[in-house]
């Protein structure tokens, strides 16, 4: 019974991680570097949503509008800071992204202050299914997560943009030869990545009830773990990885020790990487 209950909790947490992980991994597929500033998209998404909701917009619209705003911001950030470094290899990009994470997180704190805000979702009692509690928030989260992942799937499979993104991810040189404008694909990728990140941030805010400037940066490592577990660059891997990390964290908290629940998720990640150095669905480096 407790086991099933833990699975339910784990799935919802996993949904939040999975959505965020998909956003991160999509950008990796095209840009070939792990964006340490990705957590800030989450933070920005949650704060913009909070702000817009505070201005009287219904929560759903506030969330969507916030995601769009962050998507545009993502493109601007990438154009200003990442694009000039694209030809300089991995490390300059990694370090720049850490710098951007510092800047954004602290700009948010400068404006919003350090104290956490409550995310304006009303308090709801759980649904009781045969003794298993299913919190209503979790249903919302799972619903949004599934919708987001379905949207990503449709985007990649059936749209021209998605095909181009996959082509660039598979072989950037070949894609250039084939006449795919990497500029446009890059912009579109950053937009989608930041937008999904913002969505993940809003889901995170629903899960953790509060919104604070360092929320994205803290959550980032878990998202990384999910991305790696699935194999970097693989959106479907990120979905699976996110769910697995969520389950690992809740199972670890229940069956190992609550104070080791993060550590347990990372141990799972490291164990998987020892067996499969490129993650579960990762084929290439």
């Amino acid at each position: 019974m407790i086991f099933i209950q833990t699975l339910v909790f784990g799935l919802a947490l996993g949904g939040v991680i999975a959505v965020s992980a998909v956003g991160l991994t999509l950008a990796y597929g095209v840009t070939r570097f792990i964006n340490f500033a990705f957590g800030e998209f989450l933070t920005l998404g949650a704060f913009f949503c909070l702000m817009l909701a505070g201005m009287g917009l219904p929560l759903v619209w506030a969330g969507l509008l916030a995601a769009l705003i962050v998507g545009v911001l993502g493109v601007l950030l990438a154009r200003a800071f990442y694009d000039p470094l694209m030809s300089r290899g991995l490390l300059p990009l990694l370090v720049t992204s850490v710098g951007i994470a510092f800047v954004v997180q602290n700009l948010v704190r400068m404006i919003a202050g350090s104290n956490p805000f409550r995310f304006p979702l009303p308090l709801m009692r759980p649904i009781d299914i045969a003794g298993i509690f299913v919190p209503r928030e979790q249903l919302i989260i799972l619903g949004v997560a599934l919708a987001a992942m379905l949207a990503v799937h449709l985007l990649l499979r059936f749209t021209m943009l998605g095909k181009k993104m996959r082509a660039v991810a598979d072989d950037p040189a070949l894609a250039r030869v084939a006449g795919i404008s990497s500029r446009r694909v890059l912009d579109a990728t950053w937009f989608v990545s930041a937008l999904i990140g913002a969505l993940g941030g809003i889901l995170l805010a629903i899960t953790q009830i509060t919104v604070a400037p360092q929320m994205g940066w803290h959550f980032l490592l878990v998202v990384f773990a999910a991305v790696l577990l699935g194999g970097i660059g693989s959106p479907y891997g990120a979905m699976i990885g996110g769910l697995l990390i969520g389950l690992a964290m809740e199972l670890g908290a229940t069956y190992i020790a609550a104070n080791y629940s993060y550590a347990f998720a990372f141990v799972v990640l490291i164990a998987v990487l020892i067996l499969r150095p490129r993650g579960l669905l990762g084929g290439r480096g």
Partner: peptide, 26 residues
């Protein structure tokens, strides 16, 4: 982490340091 390539190594070492911190804290 002997078999891990760049990104995997970067994040795996990041995670391992957090595990170490968690152990030292607990």
């Amino acid at each position: 982490s002997a078999r891990l390539a760049t990104h995997y190594l970067a994040v795996a070492t990041f995670a391992m340091a957090e595990v170490v911190r968690s152990v030292l804290g607990n």
